[in-house]
Nucleic acid binder design. Structure first.
Lengths: 328, 328
DNA sequence: TTGTACGCGTTATCAT
DNA sequence: ATGATAACGCGTACAA
């Protein structure tokens, strides 16, 4: 590998000038700049990342800790993050925690040693652990709010409330919420806002769960679903898919007997029978914004605390007014 | 951040001894070893990754270039890779090429500067570019074979041939293959082996495509499917899902009118109506093995050239003997 | 505008 | 068994 010294020699200048010609062209005479550039080109010079990191204190790496990749929710998140990272000459250092707090903690700390900062999407893991971590290095939280720590959240709660309102408008008065993993922050937010809405509208809300966010759990949930509930909201698409199958198996038609909607929107929901009403969550933007926020943080800019990205309902055929009551 | 120098001072030894106590304990007296370890502990010492990389020439990072993450095929691949990387104290540097050869080339080269080696899953991209890259740094290919370059492939071709044999056994004599992206290496392998099998069995094989591996393309393919084909094999699950819907829309029942099978197996295929016969591909193992291979390469061990992981058919309700002919 | 010289934190070599 | 010291490759005060 050609080093800066090699380039300098080939161009007949000192290391310092060579470095400047490449990093701060404006500080160097046009003629020498060209000589250096040419030499660098010829020798195929690439600055050694480790050496640069050592002097600058910057690695150009952004750590990203996600609970899993099997859940299609995270694919667009990572892609959004990667695209934005790329634009600012950064790379993505990725780690999968598999929802294990211990593992997550260890991975996060080890990633942080190699990266300039961390983005964590951590539905599990304690507030205090996150606070402490944020003190040690630049940290941006995703879909989670802890005090005033920098965070980017997809505002599913508000979107879900709109979905709830839609159901209420259609005349539903007995609604079930199939909740997600125990202790999930996002799930807590959703339950809370749904309960509030139900009370306001004097409707009944029954919460099933907590449940693992899986297809199979959805099938179970369909079995446990009260017969008199006329609509079901589910924590995510997997549970929803499971519910769809479970309800079919139990001969409860969607939407004639019961309406169904999901609090996120994987592409498959639009191609089920019937297509399922869902929440369009700007996942890719969340990933992108998280990187932007982190880079701002690194640059010393510390503007917003929590960035909130709106989600909105996508109405499909799985929701309809309940059979007994007309549209009010 | 506490440096090695700080630890050395606190323990009353030299930098060299401190370093040895931590990296090569056997070279140091028990008593001093304990003093150093204790000091390191107290000061919360973590070796600076950049400095270490500078002297050792190793970053502890493994680069991974994938075409996309939207395709659920890659999630388990990355997770398998990450788990194995973790076991050997490595981290994953990830980049998404989005099937763009230019972008891929640039990302790969930039990743390589920060990583000890690269794993590339690159259905596009030319052989020569890959050869040249492999000369410059340790490289492991996934699902692609280029000369004698180190590679890990899921042997879908053989599995697909078994699937084909199954169809032939069932009596199908007019089979369609809905092929994947133009220029895809894996797709080429599959077409070739299917053609060969068809000739042997004196059956007719019609290849549709090349097609983008998407749900929508599958719907189109259903429309273009010859009426007299009694069975369809598709490049991947997306196309298969699309076919399933397209066939239903065209009132062609599966499997009564036409059998359907996929050359990979995303979880959703088992919960469609009917469940679809597919190929179980050990994707996670592929990712894991790719990392193992790369690390072996870094250690100077260069054993196998191409590692081949078997895939096998999972028979479900979507395949049955053709209506007109009995099982032979 | 350019060059000299030092520091970043670690590992490795060579003495002692 | 331990210590002094030289790399590793780069950026950047400071001097000229």
């Amino acid at each position: 590998m050609a080093t800066l010294m090699d380039v300098a020699r080939a161009a007949g200048v000192s290391k310092a000038t060579a470095s400047r010609a490449l990093q701060r062209p404006e500080l160097v005479a046009e003629a020498t700049r060209l000589r250096v550039l040419d030499a660098a080109q010829r020798l195929g010079f690439h600055p050694n990342a480790a050496a640069r990191a050592l002097t600058t204190g910057r690695t150009g790496l952004v750590g990203l800790v996600v609970p899993t990749l099997s859940n299609p929710f995270f694919a667009p998140l990572v892609m959004g993050a990667q695209q934005t990272a790329e634009k600012t000459d950064h790379h993505l250092l990725i780690a999968v925690s598999e929802y294990d707090p211990t593992r997550e903690a260890e991975l996060a700390d080890r990633l942080a040693e190699q990266a300039d900062g961390l983005i964590m999407v951590t539905p599990v893991g304690t507030d205090t652990a996150l606070r402490e971590r944020a003190r040690r290095f630049p940290l941006v939280l995703v879909d989670r709010q802890v005090g005033r720590l920098p965070a980017v959240v997809a505002d599913t709660a508000t979107g879900l409330a709109q979905l709830m309102d839609h159901l209420l408008d259609q005349g539903h008065r007995d609604i079930a919420y199939v909740s997600g993993p125990a202790g999930s922050w996002a799930d807590g937010q959703r339950s809370a806002i749904l309960t509030e809405r139900a009370e306001q509208a004097k409707a009944r809300l029954r919460v099933l769960g907590p449940l693992p966010p899986t297809f199979d759990a959805g099938i179970e949930a369909a079995r446990a679903l009260p017969r008199d509930a006329t609509a079901v909201l589910a924590y995510n698409s997997y549970l929803t898919l499971g519910l769809l199958h479970g309800l079919a198996a139990a001969n409860r038609r969607v939407p004639e007997d019961v309406s169904l909607a999901a609090a996120d929107d994987l592409s498959s929901l639009r191609s089920t029978t019937p297509p399922v009403t869902a929440l369009d969550v700007p996942v890719e933007e969340v990933g992108a914004l998280a990187v932007t926020r982190l880079i701002d943080l690194l640059a010393g800019r510390h503007v917003t605390v929590t960035s909130r990205l709106p989600s909105r309902p996508v109405l499909r055929a799985s929701t309809a007014p309940p059979a007994a009551s007309a549209h009010r």
